[in-house]
Design a protein around this nucleic acid. Structure first.
Lengths: 353, 353
DNA sequence: CAAATTATGGCAACCGGTTGACAAAGTAGG
DNA sequence: CCTACTTTGTCAACCGGTTGCCATAATTTG
C-alpha cells in the first residue's frame, strides 16, 4: 500500500545516478578473497576470529580489506548469528527532561562499547509501549525500559525472549536499576523538620507509576521518623500544568511544605502559588524530585531530591551489555543513591503575620 | 577481543534455557508455506506484494501466519533488498534541550510511517560526528543531521551514498530544513525599538555554527531597518555557564537590550545580571532564541524567538521518507517560520535614575 | 625418519527472506 | 474446439556473511 509500485520504466536508461549502487558499490568478503587469493571463509575468519588464520594471510587480507575500504554488512552478519550489536531504549515520553539524561547515559555507553542505540517512545501509553517493544525486539539484542508503563507480566514476557533491563521500577525476575529514594527523602524531610515545618504534603504522580508510590512511602516513613504529619494529594498529570492545578489543594491542605512526585509538578505549583502572591519559601517550601534540566532556572531555584539519571542510563546499558556477553547477574535490582539538592525553594517558614 | 570465546562446552547439556531458541522459536515463511500447503515464495508475495496472489491463497497464508504468530525477520529482508525501514538521526548534543523537540518530531514521524529511529550523538565534535554518520550509514536507509558540525563536503559525500536531510544549516545540493530567522528577529527588534532601545547587543554562539551567523546577520539587518545600533559580542560556550560569563561584556557594551544566540546563554546571562542587582527588564532587556523547554521557568520568563524545532524534526523526517519513496525534491531548502514569543524578560527600559 | 599433532585454509550448507523466469491453470476470443 | 492471453504459483538463484567438517601443510614427538 504505502510502498509505491516501481514500474519497469522507473530507471531511465543511463540517467543521473543517485544513491549507492553506482560503480564502487560496497566491497564484500568475496572481493577481498579474490584480491588476497584465498577463500571467502578465510576472510571471514581473519576478520572476526582472531588467531584463527596465520599472521601472513591475516595481513594479506587486512591489506586487501583496507584497500577496498571494506565494511561488514551488518545484515548479512546478523542473519546467521542473530546478533545485531544494537539495543533498544524505550522511554515513556521523549520530551520529558527526566529522560534526557537517561538517554544520554545509555547512548554514551552504547557507543563506547560499539553498540548502536535505537530509541522509541511510548507516549505514556502501555499499549503503545508494548507495540514498540515488540517491534524493537526483532531488531535488537536487548532492551532497556525506562519507567515502563506496561504490566509486570508483559515485561517478564519480553525478558523471556531477550535480555531486558528496567529503569525506575522494580520487576521481579528482571534486572532493574532503581534510584533508592530513601536517603534523599530523609535528608529532605530532616531539613524541613529542622526548619520548623510540621505538616508536609506529597503531591503524587500518575496512578500507574511505581516510582510515585515508592516516593510516597518514603515520605511517610521519613515523616514518621521525624514525627511530622504527611498528607497525600493527587495530581492530574505529572507536568507543569498539572502542577499548577494542584495549587488549590495544596493551600487547602494546610501544609507548609510540599514535596511533589517530580520537578515539573513542583515548578508548576510554584508558578501558580507565586502568581497568587504566596512567597516561596517564606510562606511555603517546595521540594521536587529528579533535579531535571531547568530546575535551577526558577526563582527561587528549586530544591529537589536528585536521582542520578545519567548514571541510571549508563548502569542499565552496562548491565545489559554484560548480560549479552554472558557475564553479569541474571536478575536483581541495582540501587543508585539519591541526594537532596538544597536550593532556594525550601527553608524556614516566616512567622505568620 | 571483547567477544568472549565460546568454548564447545558452553551449553551445558539440558540446563536452564535462557533467551530465544527455546522451542517455539520464530516462525519463518517456510513454516507458513508448509502449513498453508504452498511454496515459500508464494508466502513472501502474499505478505508483501498485494494482489499478486489469489485472494483465497492470500487468506490461507494470512491465517497460517497469524496462527504461527509470524513476524518477518528484518535482516533476512534487508539482505537482498538493502532496505531496512530505519533511519538515523545525529544530534550535536543529546542533553541540549534544543534537540529534544527535534528528536521527538523525527521519532513520531518515523514511527507513524513504520520506520525505526536510530539515534546518535556527536558530542559537538566534527570527527565524532563523521564517525557516527559512517557507522549509521551501513544500517539505515537515510540520515538526518541536526546542526551538523562537519564540513559541507563531508555532508555532501554522505548524501552521495544515501538520502540525507540537514536541519538548522544550509548545505548546497543537500535537502535542508532551516528556520527562517528573519520574521522572528524583525518582530523582536521592532518590539525593542518600540520600547525605546537604541543599542542592541548580540551574543554570538560557537564560531563553527552556521546558524549563529544567520542570526547575527538577521539582527544587523533588522537593526539597520529600524535605525538601531547593533553590536556583536562573543561567548565561550553556548550554555548557561557561557551566558554567565558574558555578563561583564554585556554591561560594558552599553547596550540596553541583548539578543543571545540561544536561550541557554540568555538564561545564564539573566542569572548573572540579576545576581549583580540588575533588574530585568527594567534595566536591560534579554531575548533568547529557540524557546527551549524551561525558557518560561525563569523569573521573569524569557522572551525568545521561537524556532519550531518539533516541526523541523517532523519536516526533515517527512522529507527523508519522501526521498526514500521516490517522491519529493532532491535538494533545496525548506524554511519554517520563526516568531517572537513575548514574555517578561524584555520591555520598556526604566529611565535611569 | 615415521607417526602423531596441530595449525591453516577450503568446501558447502545455512540464516530467511526476495525476485526473475517459467510452467500450469484459467479465461477469452475467434 | 482451438489458439491467445492472463493469472497464479513454483523453481532456483541470490543477498553477504558464518561455521562445522574435512583435507592438507606444518610442526612436534618418539
Amino acid at each position: 500500500m504505502t510502498e509505491p509500485q516501481t514500474p519497469d520504466t522507473a530507471q531511465p536508461a543511463g540517467s543521473v545516478k543517485k544513491h549507492g549502487r553506482d560503480g564502487k558499490s560496497n566491497a564484500t568478503i568475496y572481493d577481498i578473497a579474490k584480491m588476497a587469493g584465498v577463500n571467502a571463509s578465510t576472510v571471514s575468519r581473519a576478520l572476526s576470529k582472531p588467531g584463527r588464520v596465520s599472521s601472513k594471510t591475516q595481513k594479506l587480507i587486512e591489506d586487501a580489506a583496507a584497500q577496498l575500504n571494506y565494511q561488514v554488512n551488518p545484515f548479512a552478519r546478523a542473519l546467521p548469528t542473530g546478533k545485531t550489536n544494537t539495543f533498544g531504549l524505550i522511554v515513556a515520553d521523549i520530551t520529558n527532561p527526566t529522560f534526557f539524561d537517561i538517554i544520554r547515559g545509555a547512548e554514551t555507553t552504547a557507543t563506547s562499547r560499539d553498540y548502536t542505540l535505537v530509541l522509541a517512545e511510548s507516549a505514556e501509553s502501555p499499549a503503545t509501549e508494548l507495540t514498540a517493544a515488540r517491534r524493537l525486539m526483532a531488531t535488537v539484542d536487548g532492551l532497556i525500559l525506562a519507567s515502563p508503563r506496561m504490566d509486570d507480566d508483559n515485561i517478564r514476557a519480553l525478558a523471556q525472549d531477550k535480555p531486558v533491563v528496567v529503569i525506575n521500577r522494580e520487576v521481579d525476575g528482571v534486572p532493574c536499576v532503581v534510584p533508592d529514594v530513601n536517603k534523599g527523602i530523609s535528608e529532605a524531610v530532616r531539613s524541613m523538620a529542622a526548619n520548623g515545618h510540621q505538616r508536609i504534603a506529597y503531591v503524587a504522580g500518575p496512578p500507574q507509576s511505581w516510582m510515585s508510590e515508592r516516593r510516597w512511602e518514603g515520605v511517610q516513613a521519613a515523616c514518621d521518623w521525624s514525627r511530622l504529619e504527611a498528607v497525600r494529594l493527587e495530581s492530574s498529570k505529572p507536568t507543569v500544568d498539572g502542577g499548577r492545578k494542584t495549587a488549590r489543594d495544596v493551600r487547602a491542605s494546610g501544609a507548609t511544605a510540599v514535596m511533589t512526585y517530580n520537578d515539573l509538578l513542583a515548578i508548576g505549583l510554584m508558578q501558580e502559588l507565586q502568581a497568587a502572591g504566596i512567597v516561596v519559601p517564606d510562606h511555603i517550601s517546595i521540594i521536587g524530585f529528579d533535579d531535571i534540566f531547568g530546575a535551577d532556572f526558577t526563582t527561587p531555584p528549586l530544591t529537589t531530591v536528585r536521582s542520578p539519571l545519567g548514571e541510571c542510563g549508563e548502569a542499565a546499558a552496562t548491565r545489559l551489555l554484560d548480560l549479552l556477553h554472558g557475564s553479569g547477574e541474571q536478575a536483581g535490582t541495582l540501587s543508585v543513591e539519591t541526594e537532596l539538592v538544597l536550593r532556594g525553594s525550601s527553608g524556614r517558614i516566616l512567622p505568620a503575620k
